[in-house]
């Protein structure tokens, strides 16, 4: 067999699985465009972040071991979320150095990438094409930005699409207030934060909000809708993969 294509294990993420399957399909399409063979390991569930950030180290470690095993043997592990992949990068903290799982966690960390940073490294960007046209604004999700250094990559990829015009918002790097369980533990503070965010989004005059994390996107879309602000939202991979047939996040089906 000549030059088998390198294998990528797709880390689907709970929110893409449950709320926005298009994001996972778009990820598969883009990874294949970049020349990878994509598989979806069945033993994956959640990255474990809800337990980790609640102080439940035992369940976090159990879930980490399960994820490490699920992605054994893949050259890369790629997911459409800075937050979930950031969690995979936390796995070594869950095991003492003398524990063999510590080394396995380090090994997974070295192979695990957020999708836009992975594509920026491995995709010939000239291959990108999308029918999308419009003025977009991009929210930098905190975990991707600060834990994984995702900032330029999605913008570089978008710059290859002639139909995309980027209008940066004020405080693009300020948290939207989602924060996993934070948004339900401290709903009023979260509401203030997402209210600031929706105002900054509105002020750009963009027709579409893009981002790389569904948690933040669901939060911001929910607020934009509640406030009656006419901005649509998609995960950035939907635009990059030209998968635009579904209504934008939280939008009604056509004709309703």
């Amino acid at each position: 067999m000549a030059n088998p294509r390198p294998r990528v294990g797709l880390f689907v993420t709970c929110l893409a699985d449950m709320f926005r399957p298009e994001v996972a399909f778009a990820s598969v399409k883009l990874l294949e465009l970049a020349g990878f063979e994509v598989e979806v390991p069945k033993r994956q569930t959640c990255c474990g972040q809800p337990a980790f950030n609640s102080g439940d180290r035992k369940d976090s470690a159990d879930i980490a071991r399960q994820t490490i095993e699920a992605f054994d043997g893949f050259e890369y592990v790629v997911g459409p979320s800075g937050s979930c992949i950031g969690m995979l990068h936390h796995y070594p903290e869950l095991f003492v150095e003398s524990d063999p799982w510590h080394q396995r966690a380090l090994d997974l960390k070295a192979r695990a990438f957020e999708i836009t940073s992975f594509l920026a490294l491995h995709l010939d960007m000239d291959k990108l094409s999308s029918s999308f046209t419009g003025k977009v604004t991009y929210h930098d999700s905190c975990s991707g930005l600060r834990e994984l250094g995702v900032k330029k990559q999605p913008r570089e990829l978008l710059s290859k699409l002639p139909g995309v015009q980027i209008s940066e918002m004020e405080e693009a790097e300020t948290c939207c207030g989602f924060g996993g369980t934070f948004c339900v533990k401290y709903p009023e503070i979260s509401n203030r934060m997402v209210g600031n965010k929706s105002e900054n989004i509105r002020a750009t005059g963009a027709d579409t909000l893009l981002g790389g994390d569904l948690g933040c996107l669901l939060n911001m879309v929910g607020k934009l809708k509640r406030e009656g602000i006419e901005v649509k939202a998609r995960h950035v991979v939907e635009v990059l993969a030209d998968m635009l047939d579904s209504p934008a996040i939280g939008e009604a089906e056509q004709g309703v």
């Binding site: 449950m18 709320f19 926005r20 399957p21 298009e22 709903p187 009023e188 979260s190 509401n191 997402v194 669901l218 939060n219 879309v221 929910g222 607020k223 809708k225 509640r226 579904s246 209504p247 996040i249 939280g250």
Partner: peptide
């Protein structure tokens, strides 16, 4: 209380 919840798209 503060925002809509986007429903799954499929």
């Amino acid at each position: 209380d503060f925002r809509d919840m986007p429903a799954p798209s499929g």
